[in-house]
């Protein structure tokens, strides 16, 4: 068997990585931004919904195969609701969902070389229960997860994540209104998409940054808007009721999008 032969196992895993990364490359990035009125998640979608409500204060977006995304989304929703019922709404945290739910599930599927892996990278956002405490988590296709504050993003290639995040942090949207935060997030999306479109990216971080600084992110977004549409959700602490998740209205999006199109 494969597991008895370390070399073949390592080779199988490496093949898996190549295969999954190749599948993910063209994916539409998902960007998460903390702004003045909560947390914003933004992506561009072809037709079907890409940003989802996992629980009262938790949003989920993903790059990858739609059915794999569905499986992960459903297991996040299942776990959140079982915890919420058995304990309380306050006990449902992103840390639990990622550490005990999504992370292990994705990792075991990835390691089991005779099963199909999840072809998906996931970004989750959690609105804190008090002032502050908001966070983002990313879960990669191999089960690796990271926690971020202020901003996080996932693209079709791993290099895109850092480029998008740095772009957002440089704009410091923490006190931005929704429209400005949306604009920063869309620019970051353009950068992430640009990274996915390149045949190869410089392995050196500084060279990568230099190459990215030459990229025209707005032009990438403008081109993408010919076939895709913007989807944005907000986790709004001022929202009435327990559920803080809402889709941003098309009119709110349109004013930003029309300025990019011009």
């Amino acid at each position: 068997m494969l597991l008895d032969e370390p070399y073949r196992f390592a080779e199988a895993i490496a093949n898996r990585r190549d295969y999954i990364e190749d599948q993910l490359r063209d994916g539409s990035p998902v960007v998460g931004v903390a702004f003045a009125d909560g947390l914003l998640m933004v992506t561009l979608k072809g037709g079907s919904q890409k940003l989802f409500e996992a629980y009262d204060r938790i949003g989920l977006g993903s790059v990858g195969h739609p059915t794999d995304i569905e499986k992960l989304r459903q297991s996040a929703v299942d776990l959140a609701h079982v915890i919420g019922f058995n304990y309380s709404d306050a006990d449902v945290t992103l840390q639990q969902i990622v550490h005990f739910g999504l992370g292990p599930a994705v990792k075991s599927a990835f390691d089991d070389v005779i099963r199909s892996p999840y072809i998906a990278r996931v970004l989750l956002a959690e609105l804190g229960q008090d002032d502050g405490g908001s966070s983002f988590f990313t879960v990669d296709y191999d089960g690796t997860f990271h926690r971020y504050e202020s901003a996080a993003a996932i693209g079709g290639v791993a290099e895109a994540d850092g480029l998008m995040r740095e772009h957002i942090l440089a704009a410091d949207p923490s006190s931005h209104a929704l429209s400005d935060a949306l604009s920063v997030a869309l620019d970051a999306w353009g950068l992430g998409r640009w990274a996915g479109e390149q045949d190869s990216l410089p392995p050196d971080e500084e060279e990568l940054k230099a190459a990215a600084s030459e990229a025209d992110a707005s032009a990438v977004v403008r081109e993408a808007l010919r076939t895709l549409e913007v989807e944005a959700v907000v986790l709004d602490p001022a929202g009435s009721g327990k559920t803080k998740f809402r889709h941003v209205e098309p009119e709110e999006i349109e004013s930003i999008v029309s300025s990019i199109r011009e």
Partner: peptide, 16 residues
């Protein structure tokens, strides 16, 4: 009531 509340929310989120 708690089961019902969670059922309705769960359905809305899971089945979209």
């Amino acid at each position: 009531a708690r089961i019902l509340e969670h059922s309705f929310q769960y359905h809305r989120r899971r089945q979209l």
